[in-house]
Write a protein that binds this DNA or RNA. Structure first.
Lengths: 243, 243
DNA sequence: CTTAACAGGTCAACGGTGTTGTCGTAAGGT
DNA sequence: ACCTTACGACAACACCGTTGACCTGTTAAG
């Protein structure tokens, strides 16, 4: 294949599509996100995206090497939107809780994109910004470098992982989701205490608890543990001047 | 379409394939798992599975309604295998850590199945068994009902979510995974301290830490927090006789 | 032992997917 | 006004899941 993708810097000759649209990487990414939002998960394909843009599918390959490249761009845009309005206050626990909930909510708002992009490292602008911010919060809190990185990694992955998990749930067809609730109510709610004593003893709580996301609870546990770890740090192990 | 799938009960007339194989639901599921293991996640397609079995792809539709149906069967088999050799010892922290790591490893071994089945509730035998076991571990440890359920939910979801997240990573083509490592090494490893002080200060740790899964760290944080919570419980709040 | 029913394997086709080689054309720099 | 070339369009390829129609061997009934 020839060198098809033109780096954004050298891009200049704007030529409208047959249907009159002037393409750009941003327009493509935005349209992709809109497509996902409006028509659900599997509405995103190169051909559909081309149609939605009013362009030949193959035109997109002038902007992105392949669909994976496009997904990374979408993921980075999502990160950017999530971070845009987040302002750390100085209370690191509150800041991380807020950020975690935002990431989770962002994933739920774009189920398909979340599932497809959660495990990718984009190395792009917004992601770098996010890494820098979160590391800053942790180091300013007093975590020494290696521990800060470990906590950062676990924090981000947890938010992304739960986001992907929970949004995969919302992407299910309506009937399937109702069927799952039914399973908890009937199958688990009616197991006899003789054979399944622990389920029977907690059935009431199971039915109510399992329908909501466990991310808030998991996040609080995570932050509790992190704070405990910070408190137990030998004095003076934080990096000097991490501001 | 006609009623294509025959319920396993009524299944009887075994007729060998053109290539001499006698199909069965079990054989299909086992072959699918083997395919995933040997040739990666995207090696699983109806057509490839048919070829691997020595049967026409459309034959599989005599055993499963569609690929989703097949995936659920695979997931069920996976749960069974994960739990089969797990024996709680009485040390609840160690038991949960062991189980969490097993679930995670099981997911990694079958990426595609893990991703597709992590958010499903099957309500079938193995799943019920798992719920009962884990709840038992927690209640015997001393957690009162509602708290046991909350911890259970977060624990399972965390294991499944990280399993899906990490296995999505391994499902990537080799080149993409190398590209990610490269991103950490170069993009993040070379950011100037002036613009990105926190990344620059921890670059060394970032490069090494980010290549591995953060699940073990997240799991330990989780168990730490749970233990702290148990220790801070008012005395005598555990359910009486939870054995 | 014969026979009729039908489970279940096979075939061909449909409409979808990502991706690429090729070509024409119009935009931009000179 | 000319050249270069960016970039949109087209056609084709190989794959995908799924289905309706067909055919054949097994099996149970008579």
């Amino acid at each position: 294949m020839t060198d098809r993708v033109v780096p954004p810097a050298a891009r200049q000759r704007k030529r409208p599509t047959k249907q009159g649209v002037v393409l750009s990487a941003e327009l493509i990414v935005d349209t992709a996100l809109r497509l996902i939002e409006e028509h659900g998960a599997d509405a995103l394909s190169v051909r559909r995206l081309g149609r939605a843009l009013g362009a030949d599918p193959s035109s997109l390959y002038r902007y992105f090497r392949d669909t994976d490249d496009l997904m990374l761009a979408i993921a980075d845009e999502l990160i950017g939107r999530t971070l845009r309005s987040w302002r750390p206050t100085g209370d690191w626990v509150a800041d991380l809780r807020e950020l975690g909930l935002r990431m989770h909510a962002g994933a739920l708002a774009h189920p398909r994109a979340a599932v497809l992009s959660a495990h990718r490292v984009t190395g792009r602008r917004h992601e770098i910004q996010a890494v820098e911010s979160i590391l800053g919060v942790l180091r300013r809190a007093g975590f020494p470098g290696p521990e800060a990185v470990r906590i950062y990694h676990a924090f981000v992955d947890q938010a992304l992982a739960f986001g992907a998990l929970d949004s995969a749930g919302t992407a299910l067809p309506r009937s399937a989701r109702e069927a799952e609730a039914q399973v908890w109510r009937t199958t688990y709610g009616r197991l006899p205490a003789e054979s399944h004593p622990h389920i029977a003893a907690t059935a009431r709580h199971l039915v109510t608890t399992m329908r909501a996301s466990s991310y808030p609870a998991a996040l609080d546990l995570f932050l509790d543990a992190a704070r405990t770890r910070l408190d137990n740090l030998p004095a003076g192990t934080g990096d000097p001047r991490p501001h």
